[in-house]
Amino acid sequence: MDMGEIIGTTAEDVVARRRWMGVLARASGAEIAARLREAAPLPPHTRLRGPEIGLVMARGRQGGDGAPFNLGEITVTRCTVGLGSAAVGHAYVAGRDARKAELAAVLDAALQDRALRPGLLDAVIEPLATAQAERAARTARKAAATRVDFSTLAVMR
C-alpha cells in the first residue's frame, strides 16, 4: 500500500494526535473494532513493542494543587507498531485489553498518514468521540438534576 505524507510534530499535529489517542483510550476494544468494520481496511503492521500490560503510578497533589504524591497504580496496556517504513503508532490505554491497545496503536500510525487520516477520522474517531461526549453529557445532566436550588426553597417559604 502506498503511504502518504506522515504528519510531523508541529503544535497542531500534536493537538490532533493527542485528541485521537485520548478518544481511542476511552473507547472499549469492542467499540473500536465495530467502527473499524465501517472503515477501509488498515494497512499491515509490525509489532515493535507489546502489547504489554503494566502499571502507571497515578499521582495527585497535596491539597489538590500542591506538591505531587503517589495515589496508587492503574493498570495500563501499551503497544507500539510500525506501519510501512515511516509511521510508528503508539498506544497507552488504561486497563488490560491487549487487542484494544494494538488496534489503537495501528490507528495512531494510520492517522498520522495524511492520506488515510480523513477517512479514519470520519469512520472511527468522530463517532467514538460523539458517543463519549454524549455519555459525559448524560452524566452531567444527571448531576445537574441533583443540584440543590436554595433560592427555590426560599420562595416556597
Binding site: 509490525t46 509489532r47 515493535l48 513493542r49 504489554e52 507500539t80 510500525g82 517504513s85 510508528v88
Partner: peptide, 14 residues
C-alpha cells in the same frame, strides 16, 4: 524517534 531505536526488543518478553 529514529527507526533503529524502534526495532523490536525481546521476541517473547516474559
Amino acid at each position: 524517534m529514529r527507526a533503529a531505536a524502534l526495532s523490536p526488543g525481546l521476541a517473547d518478553p516474559v
